[in-house]
Nucleic acid binder design. Sequence first.
DNA 1: GCAAAAGTGTTGGGGCTACACCCATGA
DNA 2: TCATGGGTGTAGCCCCAACACTTTTGC
Lengths: 241, 241
Amino acid sequence: MARAKTGANLPHCYEFPMVSVAVDCAVFGWDINDGLHVLLIERGEKPFGHALPGGFVRAKQENLETAARRELEEETGVSNAHLEQFHAYGDPERDDRGNHVISVAFFALVRRIDHTPRGGTDADTADWYPIQQARSLKLAFDHQTILSDAIDRLFEKLRHDPIAFKLLPRKFRLREVQHLYETALGQEVDKRNFRKKLLEMGLLEDTGETESDVRHRAARLYRFNNAEYEKRSRQGWKFDI
Amino acid sequence: MARAKTGANLPHCYEFPMVSVAVDCAVFGWDINDGLHVLLIERGEKPFGHALPGGFVRAKQENLETAARRELEEETGVSNAHLEQFHAYGDPERDDRGNHVISVAFFALVRRIDHTPRGGTDADTADWYPIQQARSLKLAFDHQTILSDAIDRLFEKLRHDPIAFKLLPRKFRLREVQHLYETALGQEVDKRNFRKKLLEMGLLEDTGETESDVRHRAARLYRFNNAEYEKRSRQGWKFDI
DNA sequence: GCAAAAGTGTTGGGGCTACACCCATGA
DNA sequence: TCATGGGTGTAGCCCCAACACTTTTGC
């Protein structure tokens, strides 16, 4: 999908030099045993190494979010993610292949169990990396900056928006929620106070089910009541943890 | 600055059709007598009517923020604004002149007294409009959506970031701060409690001066201590109102 | 019965809300 | 002296933080 400047037929001509537009996604997945992970591509072409999934927007055919969903599906097999655009990156030198490429970055939240990554259409492979490890890799282009911004934004947003429930399984234990928030806040929280706050908020429904296959007392499973959240949201209520 | 498709020399050729990249700015100004205003251009060309100041990014020459500053300066004479990128708009049909133009939108905060708007380099004229009035205008392209998002974002951000002091004069009365917050929150706040909170926060310095030319008791003038704010910020402290 | 996590109540203190009056100034 | 906004103190309440033990289950 690179905009070649060499070669025979370059049929699309303009008065001024043009910028290319790409989208990139920081896809996050959560697992109570493993913590927060991000989905990275191991590139099979030009700038080798790891990178965020993404690619060029198809002019006149799609908007930014559609492009992001398409690239995500093509490169990693992930579909139906919760997508949120968070920043555009536009330094002229950010793509070291020479073109001026601006990239609109999204973060994406998925339930990790639903998404065993698969490789892309070409030689690329996609895989989950713990965020600590991902942070220590040398990513292509300015993807390390993008990833770092995405993580900051995700942690910030978890506090003011109930997007945690896009990461957690549909039926979850309270302790999973707590663990996720401890990761986001960077500190431990008091179990009793956290549960009280969460339950008294009135957005969690007891499914009546409990976990199974554990060798200790089984935890109740809860479900997030999104309809109720949206109702209150329209009335000006604000989620906060 | 339009990317003409007609005409003789179109020297920049590509393998694929290209997207154009623009930046647009919602410039906000505040005045205690007048409330919140936004700076709009009255366009002298093609899609006539009002629009946000902005224009195309110069490929290979500038990044997004630089482009926004340049366009702001060229079209309205505004310089040294506080700029924050907030969203990118990319629907293929959003520019009704036919090209696929994505726009990276910024909101800009200025001290209105410093900026008497002046016209642009061409036939355009720039002027302040109260936000209520601006909201009721039919703006060019999807600028009404952009403006509306910018206002929402500004109001939200005022609560978690001391950006109010980018809108207020360098030396301000407490009542001005209160008025601005009442606008942002959409509700009145208690004078005593508001002052207490603000002063006990310890980020406002008494300048020792008072306002003049008023026919009632003169108010003290305060200054925002940005150095202190940044220091605390680095220590993890969070502004909140 | 033991290991491992689930689940639960109370208390004290700090911060927020609510509320009303005097002060300084210019006309 | 009056009109106009500037400036201040307190009491009650609610919410948040701190804190430790009992329950269930599988092995």
